[in-house]
Design a protein around this nucleic acid. Structure first.
Length: 488
DNA sequence: TACCCGGAAGTGGA
DNA sequence: ATCCACTTCCGGGT
């Protein structure tokens, strides 16, 4: 079942299919379908509905493709497919045929109500709707999940901002920034619960609009796991064990479940990939954490001025996988030491595929993805853990990253002009090194590239102009402390 | 062989 | 048109 993704996507530049974000209903949710790697179904769907299946919501901010999705479902269809009657099922099928460009479905094979249809396995669906079964299955799963999530969430409305700030503020930080940790509970201007939030709240989803830190901080079930992005910032309080993330497996950090075959893993991953909300940074979204743990979350309106990467950026994507509350991605990537930001890519090809799907570059591979990671070296977002394969270290916490603007990864200047952030009194230095597990030394083996000599200045004292041609990194604000020095 | 590195050029979205 | 964050390719090193 290893489908050659490269083949599917078109091997070369210019041939690569591109997703069609707009008009099409956004799709398959969560993740599932986005990551359907070796997908059994038409991969075109990945291109078309990369963001996942929009969930159920009463609010459909027009700006979000995700939100549009729901709006395109037959209006008469109840959110929960399990309550559909036969006519609803027929409507759904027609809609699915139309929206997903799947092969015509023999409606006679679906003379049943929604509940019955939901009980059909993927195989069952595939038999009844050859060529479309997988899509239907995925969509149904998503709808059911979202319906469940919605139910779960309703009684718990987000809100009540509490005064408690989950992260200890850095010495130089200011009071709880509205976007702390990226976990800012984004709320729509009207307090409406966005679809993204709902989705994010779903098990499979999650991560929210806000980057990692957020996600981390929002990880209710893992109070024990709050180092990097958590413990170092948080009081450690806050976890609500009652949260019901389904996948109870993989609770451990790296070392947990062994990676499956890339394809198998990828496929199963589809249903679990974190949801990365609307791409528009301006899109109002609620922090999923709010739903998970409303009593302990703060809800701040998303600052439109703040970049909301939503998993679009590689570092954010990785953070979100790493900080998945249910730790469902440990077979792909896992913390080796959260406190120091050291992580290991457990399944390089698998992770690369996930990233490729996320970015709609199905020909993505570890080589390419690692190149992107290497670009982070120069801006001190990442560093390689020397001597350990597939091990990297985040040098900045997500909050910092999130608040960094205009990070020009493209190298333009001579690498000797700028001093690295490490050890800076501004507290913006890189994360502390990971002594035990990460014997990394400042790129000892790389002549002239000693970590400390990295040209990038991420100082957040204000816009840093490395202009003289260089990487241009303007940190607009830095609410949180650095992760500590990379070196001892 | 696989991993790692970084230059160079290209891509696509904002 | 410009910028950004990659993506793609590649030659070279470990």
């Amino acid at each position: 079942m290893s489908v050659n993704l490269r083949w599917i996507a078109g091997e070369r530049k210019g041939v690569t299919m591109k997703m069609v974000p707009g008009p099409l209903p956004s799709i398959p949710t969560s993740t599932m379908d986005r990551l359907g790697l070796p997908l059994p179904f038409n991969t075109d769907l990945l291109w078309r509905y990369p963001l996942g299946f929009p969930s159920v919501s009463h609010h459909n901010p027009p700006s979000s493709p995700l939100l549009d999705y729901k709006s395109q479902l037959p209006a008469s269809l109840p959110s929960d497919p399990r309550v559909w009657n036969r006519d609803d099922v027929a409507s759904f099928l027609q809609w699915a045929e139309r929206e997903f460009d799947i092969q015509p479905i023999d409606h006679d094979m679906f003379q049943m109500n929604g509940k019955a249809m939901c009980l059909l396995t993927r195989t069952d669906l595939a038999e009844r709707a050859p060529g479309s079964g997988d899509v239907l299955h995925n969509v149904l799963q998503i709808l059911v999940r979202e319906a469940n999530n919605l139910q779960r969430m309703l009684p718990n409305s987000p809100v009540t901002p509490t005064s408690r700030h989950p992260y200890p503020l850095s010495p130089h930080s200011h009071p709880p920034t509205p976007n702390w940790g990226g976990v800012h509970a984004d709320a729509t201007p009207h307090g409406a619960v966005s679809i993204a939030a709902i989705m994010a709240q779903s098990n499979s989803t999650t991560l929210s609009p806000a980057p990692s830190v957020d996600s981390q901080a929002s990880s209710p079930k893992h109070a024990d796991n709050q180092a990097f992005g958590h413990s170092i910032f948080s009081n450690g309080s806050g976890s609500n064990p009652s949260d019901s993330d389904e996948d109870g497996d993989n609770k451990k950090c790296y070392g947990g479940s062994p990676p499956n075959t890339p394809t198998a893993t990828a496929y199963s991953f589809m249903s679990q990939m974190p949801y990365f909300p609307p791409r528009s940074p301006k899109e109002p979204v609620l922090n999923p954490a709010a739903f998970k743990n409303s009593s302990q979350r703060e809800f701040f309106p998303n600052d439109p001025s703040e970049p909301n990467t939503n998993g679009r950026l590689l570092w954010d994507f990785l953070q979100q996988l790493l900080n998945d509350p249910a730790q469902r991605y440990t077979s792909y990537i896992a913390w080796k030491n959260r406190e120091t930001g050291v992580f290991k890519i457990v399944d390089p090809p698998g992770l690369a595929k996930l990233w490729g799907i996320q970015k709609n570059h199905l020909s993505m591979n570890y080589d390419k993805m690692s190149r992107a990671l290497r670009y982070y070296y120069r801006v001190n977002i990442l560093r390689k853990v020397q001597g350990e394969r597939h091990c990297y270290q985040f040098l900045r916490n997500p909050t910092e990253l999130k608040n960094m603007k205009n990070i020009t990864l493209r190298q333009q200047l001579s690498p000797t002009t700028v001093k690295p952030p490490s050890g800076k009194p501004d507290g913006l230095g890189p994360v502390k090194s990971e002594p035990a597990e990460a014997p990394e030394e400042p790129a000892p083996g790389r002549p002239g590239v000693d970590y400390d000599d990295k040209p990038t200045d991420l100082s957040m004292d204000g816009p840093t102009d490395l202009s003289s041609g260089a990487r241009h990194i303007n940190i607009v604000c830095s609410p949180d402390p650095p992760l500590g020095g990379p070196h001892h």
